[in-house]
Simulated assay, not measured.
Amino acid sequence: MSADPLVVVTQPYVPAYRVPLFENIREKLGTRGIRFLVAAGHPVGSQAARGDRESPPWRVDVRSKGVRLGARTVEWRALPPDLQPDVLVSELEALNNLAWMRSFGKGKLVLWGHGRPYVNDAGALSDRIEWTLARRADAVMTYADGGRDYLVENGKLDPESVVAIGNSTDSASLRAAYNAVDAAEMENLLRRWPRAPRALFVGGLDAAKRIDFLVDAAIAARQKEPQFTLLVVGRGEMQEKLLRAGDAIEHMPVARGVELARLGHVVQAIWMPGRIGLVAVDALALGLPIFTTSYRYHAPEAEFLLDGERVTLPDDPRAFAHKALTLMAEHTIPNRSLRADIPTIESVAGKFTDVVLNELGVPPGPRSRHA
Rank of each mutant, 00 (worst) to 15 (best):
L205K: 07
G105S: 15
A329C: 05
T31Y: 00
I25Q: 06
S161M: 09
R222E: 08
D170I: 00
A280N: 09
L79M: 12
A49V: 01
G155V: 05
E240M: 07
P80F: 13
T73L: 11
E91W: 13
D145Q: 13
L133D: 08
Y118M: 01
I25F: 04
V232Q: 13
A39F: 08
W58D: 02
G365E: 10
R318E: 15
I270R: 10
P343V: 02
S90N: 10
V348D: 01
A40E: 01
R210Q: 15
P194H: 09
A217F: 08
G113C: 03
L200Y: 12
K156T: 01
T344L: 02
V254I: 05
V233E: 08
D61I: 01
F201G: 12
P314R: 08
V311R: 15
A39K: 12
L95R: 14
D86K: 09
A280V: 10
V9E: 08
A221W: 09
G41M: 00
S368F: 04
P343A: 00
P43N: 01
G166V: 05
D121K: 10
A371G: 14
H331V: 06
A302F: 15
L79E: 11
L360C: 04
G51S: 00
G350M: 07
W76T: 05
P334Q: 12
L260S: 04
I219N: 09
A172Y: 02
L284M: 15
G203K: 07
N188V: 11
A207N: 06
L69V: 14
P159N: 11
A302C: 11
P43R: 06
I129W: 14
I34P: 02
N97L: 13
R135A: 05
Q84Y: 10
A71E: 13
G30W: 02
L157R: 00
L109I: 01
K323E: 14
N167C: 03
F104S: 15
S55Y: 03
I342R: 15
W76V: 10
R32M: 04
L174A: 05
F304T: 12
V311Q: 14
S173P: 00
I290R: 14
D149E: 13
V87T: 07
H298R: 14
A172H: 08
G146N: 09
I342H: 11
E75D: 06
A40Y: 00
A319C: 02
